[in-house]
Design a protein around this nucleic acid. Sequence first.
DNA 1: AGTACAATGACAACATGCTGACATAGTGAA
DNA 2: TTCACTATGTCAGCATGTTGTCATTGTACT
Lengths: 146, 146
Amino acid sequence: MHSPKRILFLDLVLSIFRLNGLLIAEGDALTEKLGLTHARWKVIGAIALSNAGLTVPGVARVLGQSRQAVQRITDVMVVDGLLAYQRNPKHKRSVLITLTEEGNHVYNMLREQQDPWVMENTQEIPIEELDQTLRLIRRLINKFDK
Amino acid sequence: MHSPKRILFLDLVLSIFRLNGLLIAEGDALTEKLGLTHARWKVIGAIALSNAGLTVPGVARVLGQSRQAVQRITDVMVVDGLLAYQRNPKHKRSVLITLTEEGNHVYNMLREQQDPWVMENTQEIPIEELDQTLRLIRRLINKFDK
DNA sequence: AGTACAATGACAACATGCTGACATAGTGAA
DNA sequence: TTCACTATGTCAGCATGTTGTCATTGTACT
């Protein structure tokens, strides 16, 4: 049972855990000057990328997290003036999340940090390898996301 | 600046976050009957795989976590009778962690759950793809782990 | 329309990760 | 040997994730 594939897969699982931790640390370092954290980085990114406007459960679905976890983050970000809740014509209670002017400004500054970071960490990696890896990761996500 | 590579990389980062969350859920489901959690699964695995015996900071280094986080888990596992602290001939205060008889039993049962799980989730995936992916993940880990 | 089921907000309990701080133990160089 | 630096255990505070529960709102089917 100690097939190479088994070892390889368990190794991959542990490496995902490891990389996840390192990416969180990178995210925190990257956003520290902006008064953000990795969790807020994920949320502000999801909202900035949405055209139609997202609700709290909508962000949770995009990020694959519980709506409660997202709600806690967005509540704080609204208090901090980065996000605002807007009336949702489609739902009496479930409001839409939008970026405030300050939120937009922070997101733009975030981009200025993020873009060189991405460049730095991908320039030596062929695009085909990134693509293959992303495809396998997605395949595993689909397998587990039921 | 919206190069395909940039999009691809950010997509990969988000997918790592996503897969990490799903793997934690899988780990929790897999170990629930054994009274474990994903965090204890990682720790018990690290200790079972070590031949020479590990200290708390040793496990932390293997897993790439803070020693404080590992200490908290092992303290509980010692109380629960899965682990035991043993005198370390090389250090007066930093004890070695060993599996108790019960800990060994739980680890074996864990393997009985884990092996079919690994089989089920890898049988359709060529070993070369797993290998390529692991290599890229490792490459990123090395990049961020300074 | 009415009614069952799903989605949402709100609150709580808990697990797990991080960092910081402090005292003690170990190590290596002068 | 002595002294500076590193490693370790311990305690605390905090951020973030999970699940569970309950009341309310939306949706879809009869």
